[in-house]
Write a protein that binds this DNA or RNA. Structure first.
Length: 274
DNA sequence: CCGACGTCCTGCTAGC
DNA sequence: TGCTAGCAGGACGTCG
């Protein structure tokens, strides 16, 4: 489940291979992804050079020359890896971009929650992405973050998953951050004290930084752009540990459903406050 | 305007 | 042993 650290890893892995590469051929499967791939996109992509590969939140932004852009989301199970033409094509490969080097950039996505969107203008792509997202965890500012939490009458877990509050957090890193900040997932944003918001901002930054350093978390399908797995799953303190005991106080870890997502927490370290 | 919830999708697994 | 219901969750549309 690619969240910010996983998407960042994919981008870092692919960037040196994609920068300056020219797309010579595009092949797509008949099955549709979250957005349907328009035939015209394939034609427009051909003979374009990749100028830049960037990430914002969980979105991958590709700037092309002559001017155009390709926006990619990995969804739940999206994998984007580079292959030699003779490599076996894995099942659920939906998009293949052939580069002038003959290498193939293949997008595989079992559950097809991933999406592509082509833009004739890169500026338009950037505007679209910015309109969906709040600040990167790196740029979280305690006071502004607190303001965006305290004005919402929603559980903090739901707020962390909201890409407009902070970009790039998903279920894993939300649970890990809340545990380290000693906040119950159902705690209402409106009830937070400034010190709690600041502490949460700090833990989010720590968690994301460490996870990026370890190339993200592999728990099911995720692989980086080089095909390597992540390693952060070995450092999970709370996520996926239902039935085990809290690493801090030995209390049994519990799961509660918040915003339709299973939320792991320690009932002793993360007590619900008024 | 805001928040809650359903929808998409496939593969794995818990439980009968 | 074999079947199936339920779960995994990112973004977005819809509804109250």
């Amino acid at each position: 489940m690619p969240e910010l650290p996983e998407v960042e890893t994919v981008v870092r892995d692919l960037r040196p291979h994609l920068q300056h590469a020219v797309i010579t051929h595009v092949k797509t499967s008949t099955q549709s992804l979250r957005r349907t791939w328009r035939k015209s996109w394939s034609k427009k992509l051909c003979q374009k050079q990749i100028k830049k590969v960037d990430r914002r939140g969980k979105w991958i932004m590709i700037e092309l020359q002559p001017e155009a852009g390709l926006l990619v989301h990995l969804g739940m199970t999206g994998q984007w890896t580079l292959h030699e033409p003779h490599d076996d094509v894995a099942s659920h490969t939906h998009v293949t971009l052939t580069l002038h080097s003959k290498k193939e950039l293949r997008f595989r996505d079992v559950r097809r929650f991933g999406s592509f969107q082509f833009y004739d203008s890169y500026l338009e792509l950037q505007d679209e992405v910015e309109s969906k997202l709040g600040p990167e965890p790196d740029h979280l500012h305690g006071k502004t973050f607190h303001e965006s939490l305290v004005t919402r009458h929603r559980p903090i877990k739901s707020l962390l998953l909201d890409q407009k509050i902070v970009a790039g957090i998903g279920n894993i890193y939300a649970d890990e951050s809340l545990f380290l900040a000693s906040l119950h997932p159902l705690q209402l944003g409106s009830s937070l004290k400034i010190t709690q918001s600041q502490r949460l901002a700090d833990t989010i930054q720590q968690v994301i930084k460490r996870a990026v350093a370890l190339r993200g978390s592999t728990i099911r399908d995720y692989v980086g752009g080089s095909g390597l797995q992540g390693e952060y799953q070995h450092e999970f303190t709370i996520y996926g540990r239902q039935g085990e005991t809290c690493p801090r106080c030995d209390t049994l870890i519990q799961v509660v459903r918040v915003a339709g997502r299973s939320s792991h927490f320690c009932p002793c370290c993360q007590q619900l406050q008024e």
